[in-house]
Structures are given as structure tokens and as C-alpha cells.
Nucleic acid binder design. Structure first.
Lengths: 207, 207
DNA sequence: ACCGATACCGCACAAGTGTGCTATAAAAAG
DNA sequence: CTTTTTATAGCACACTTGTGCGGTATCGGT
């Protein structure tokens, strides 16, 4: 046998190449040939790890979820104050640097494609639920309440409203900074997020 | 000469067909052939009104701005109270019914393409400025202050912060309800928007 | 030393793409 | 009626796409 490569690791590497290509040429530019060329392999070599173009894109999309997960988990246990951890958690979802920027690009592109593809539907719903869960977690961290245990666990109505709002704000920040990075600098992003978390924490009169 | 059709009107009609196609098959499915077929014309007939595929898509994208403009203008002068008018204005940007839903689909698709195309760049920036202007207008309507006159006029720092936040919320609502219409029902959308406008109006302690 | 599995290559093909082009039908203008 | 202008049709071409398939080099196992 030849080099005997680690299949999973190689697939992950190739997925990063797909990210780069999508970031530069959009998802319609992420053709099999271009990804192969960018990865420095032949078109057949790519097909050895992904049996179809759809499968390649789906895996690349799933990889951003796999990349974000550990990063937020790292913030979950620590000795920082709750609101600070909430901020760090949600900031992992936002395009604050080049790496997260390309992740967001890929994610938005795949989200749009999921409306047509159907193969990414499962992933799309899982990601929504995961993001909502993180928002609930952030609310709990800001307020010092009991964090939700399983994904899907709702908070009580008052806090759930905060989670919904945070979710909307995070998605809005994502879209704006991804589509208009020149109009929306990152420090403005941080400021908006911090203000919303402050509001969640202090909760003035709570309506 | 034959029927002697109104060129502009026909182009607008064809643009609506492009909307339908994008709504159903995504922007990558909006090929010249499919649009022609859906419009009931031949591929050559389409090319008589649009000299290129890019031009077709660009015009279709510009048409959503042209469609939204008059609708918000209709809300601007009226005898309703300010906050109510602010709500109506911003709701015109959100996918609250099937028509606005397809507009949002088209808009998001073209926004994503603008990151690669370049031909839509001008339109993209104009739309951003327009949306920000409407948010400033909504703030002024909620607070009873003097509305901004020209697009690009900033409010004072306090109110500008509200406008930024509203802009983020509107975009977040747009993305969420467009991508996850099943998870985010329209009445929830209305509730979030109304809460944010309330906050803009009452402005509790203003940080 | 040999075998066979494995990683990778790259051509071939059908399908689909945008676009240029000519042809045709229709109706206003003379 | 004839002419001329316009709307529409649809074929042809070059090109790109995803994918199937046979070929080849490489290295671990025996």
C-alpha cells in the first residue's frame, strides 16, 4: 500500500481548501476542478475522498460546525465572570478575524444552497438549534441562572425572549459584517454585541 | 412593426419571472433557459431585452429596490402616530407575506453573488445606505425628532446607536425568517420588531 | 521478492451553460 | 400593397460542469 493516509484528517484538510475557494470565488466557484487544483491534487484524487461534488460541499459545511464546537466549549468552563464568557461564546460565531470570516462566508453560502439542495437540510436545522442553544446559554451566563442542559431545552418565557433577541442580533451581525465588511468594522460589531449582552444582564424593567 | 411593447414594462415583468425562479431554484438555478421557459418566451426573445445573463440578474436585483421604495414611501406621509409608521416602514423590508418573502430571497441571493460578481457592487452599497437611512428614519419617527433629510445624514451619537441596532435587528430578522421560515413564524417576527421599536421609543435610561 | 491493496492520476463523455447569429412573423409607415 | 422596423424564435458554437473508468505508481504485508 502507499502512504496510508489518515482518511478523516485528509478529508478535513480538503474541506479547508473548499473553505478558501468559497471565500474567494463563492460557492458557485467551488467546482471540483478548482478545489482539486487549489489542493494540489488531481480531479481523480479528490474523488477518492469524496464520491460526489454534493458530498464534498456537504462535508465542508459540516466541518465549520465541527470547527466552531470545540472553540465555544473551551469558553464554557473557566473562571471568568459569566457575562464575559457569554461574550466570548457568541463572538466565536462572528467574523472577528480572517478565520472566522471565512467560516461565516462558507456557512452563509451553504445556508443559501440548503434552500435548494435538500442534502444540507439536516445540517441546517441542527445548526439553528445549536445557535439558539448557545444564545440561551449566554442568557443564563449573563443572568446567573441555571444553564439549559440539552439542546432544545427552553428557558422560561422572560429569558426565552432574550435568547430569541440575541439570536436575531447575532445573525444580523453575521450578515452585516459578512456582506458589508467595509461599512461595519469589527469594533462596531463588538460594541453592538456588548450592548445587547449588557441589556440581557441588567434587564431594565424587563418590559 | 409588431406589437410595439413597452420596453421598460416588459423588462420589469421579466424581472418578476426571475424572482420566481430564484425563489424556487436559487440563483444558480436562474439560468437563461429556465427564465425564458418560465416566462413563456424563447431564449432569443429574452436576449432581446437583456443583452447578457449578468444584466438580467442585475436588473432583477435592482427591481426589488424599485419595488420596495414606493411601498415605504406610502407609509411616510400619513396621519398615523410616529412609532406605528416606523413599524410599517421597517415591515416592508421583512418577509411577512409571500411577495416580500420572494423579494428577500432574491435580495439575499444577489447579495451573496455581489461578493463575487462586482457588477452588483454599486447596488449593494446603495441598498445598505438606503436601509440604514430607513432605520434612522424609524428612530426619528419613534422619538419624534427631526427626520434625516438626505441619505447618509447621520443622527447624533445617541440616536445613531439606535439606528445601528435596528439595522442589525432588521437584517437578523431577514436572515432568520428567510432561512428558517418554519422555526421563525411571522408573528414572532412582528413581536421582536415591535419590542425593539418600543425600546427605541421609550429608551430606558439610554444606557 | 513478490503480491495486492491503496492513493492518485487524467482522459472521455454527456449534459448543461451563456452567447452570437440568422431567420421569420407581424404590424406600423409610406 | 410595399417597405421597413421590431419582437420573437431557435439553432450553433465554444466552453464548463460533474462523473465514470481504466491506468499507474507506491508501499505494507508475507
Amino acid at each position: 500500500m502507499p502512504k496510508l493516509v489518515d482518511h478523516d484528517r485528509r478529508r478535513a484538510e480538503l474541506a479547508r481548501v473548499v473553505w478558501r475557494v468559497i471565500g474567494r470565488h463563492g460557492i458557485e466557484g467551488a467546482t471540483v476542478r478548482r478545489v482539486a487544483e487549489e489542493a494540489g491534487v488531481s480531479i481523480g484524487g479528490l474523488r477518492h475522498y469524496f464520491d460526489s461534488h454534493q458530498g464534498l460541499l456537504r462535508f465542508a459545511a459540516a466541518e465549520v460546525a465541527s470547527a466552531v464546537g470545540p472553540r465555544v466549549a473551551a469558553h464554557l468552563d473557566g473562571d471568568l465572570p459569566g457575562p464575559e464568557r457569554a461574550r466570548l461564546v457568541l463572538e466565536e460565531l462572528l467574523p472577528l478575524d480572517a478565520d472566522r470570516r471565512v467560516e461565516v462566508d462558507v456557512w452563509l453560502a451553504c445556508l443559501a444552497r440548503a434552500r435548494v439542495d435538500g442534502a444540507m437540510d439536516e445540517l441546517r436545522h441542527a445548526a439553528w438549534a445549536g445557535e439558539r442553544h448557545l444564545c440561551r446559554l449566554a442568557v443564563a451566563l449573563c443572568r446567573g441562572g441555571a444553564p439549559p442542559t440539552a439542546i432544545g431545552d427552553e428557558l422560561d418565557e422572560r429569558l426565552e425572549r432574550h435568547a430569541r433577541r440575541l439570536h436575531v442580533v447575532v445573525d444580523g451581525l453575521t450578515l452585516q459584517t459578512a456582506m458589508f465588511p467595509d461599512r461595519f468594522p469589527v469594533d462596531e460589531l463588538r460594541e453592538v454585541l456588548r450592548a445587547e449582552l449588557d441589556r440581557t444582564a441588567t434587564d431594565p424593567a424587563d418590559r
